[in-house]
Nucleic acid binder design. Structure first.
Lengths: 112, 112
DNA sequence: AAGCTATTCAACCGAGTGGTTGACAAGGAC
DNA sequence: GTCCTTGTCAACCACTCGGTTGAATAGCTT
């Protein structure tokens, strides 16, 4: 959808990833592009429900669609997961130092 | 809360991260632990709303609380972001090959 | 054109979200 | 004990979510 602030992008990406059906859809698209009904097949929900999930993923720009003949071909846009990964990367430095004492070693560290 | 499947853990983590106020709270806790009202101060919502956000973050085990005198001290548990980061790491290999042709290079690659 | 296939749309439903306000509990300070 | 501060709880509200079913659209095929 048109244009989004950084925060809104992260909102839509993390929201898209917060549902197991949608994460499963993305996993399925990693190997190759698929039609909508092919995507829906392994999931125990209606085709309309899958269509809604695809709209959520599309709003987050994690997939792209292309009409090809009678089918709607869906393709992963994995590069757009990057903002989420970068947001998380900020916390890497805290993984090994959960102890409160050590947590003060960083000083002039700030952003966003 | 008690015990969660991997999928449920990712659900709660990604859901917790899908709100800008909650992400901002986590950022604020990166430098040091804080009391609830100290957390609430920079956010233009009621204290009760912040308290709800903290419950969501606590359910995802991204923070921990400790009663210290009159205050409730909140501390980041950054290590529990790891499942999210690992889930995303799977897609790193697709960033530089959005082209459909190249996307077929991987073959026996499957998991979860 | 008629029909089949693939997909979306619209309306509805129950549950959850993020916010509010006001009452309540928990723990110093006086 | 009484007051003040800190924080949660409960009830409410408008909105969103994930799901359904049934009708509508888009595009082959014949």
């Amino acid at each position: 959808m048109v244009k989004q602030s950084n925060a809104a992008r992260l909102d839509s990406i993390f929201h898209a990833l917060s549902d197991p059906t949608r994460r499963s859809i993305l996993r399925g698209l990693a190997s190759r592009e698929k039609s909508v009904s092919e995507i829906a097949k392994p999931h125990p929900v209606s085709l309309a429900a899958v269509s809604k999930h695809l709209k959520v993923l599309e709003a987050a720009e994690l997939i792209a669609r292309e009409r090809r003949g009678n089918f709607q071909i869906v393709r992963l846009k994995a590069a757009n997961l990057r903002p989420a990964e970068q947001w998380l990367a900020y916390y890497d430095k805290f993984w090994n130092q959960q102890l409160d004492a050590l947590q003060t070693y960083m000083e002039g560290d700030q952003d966003d």
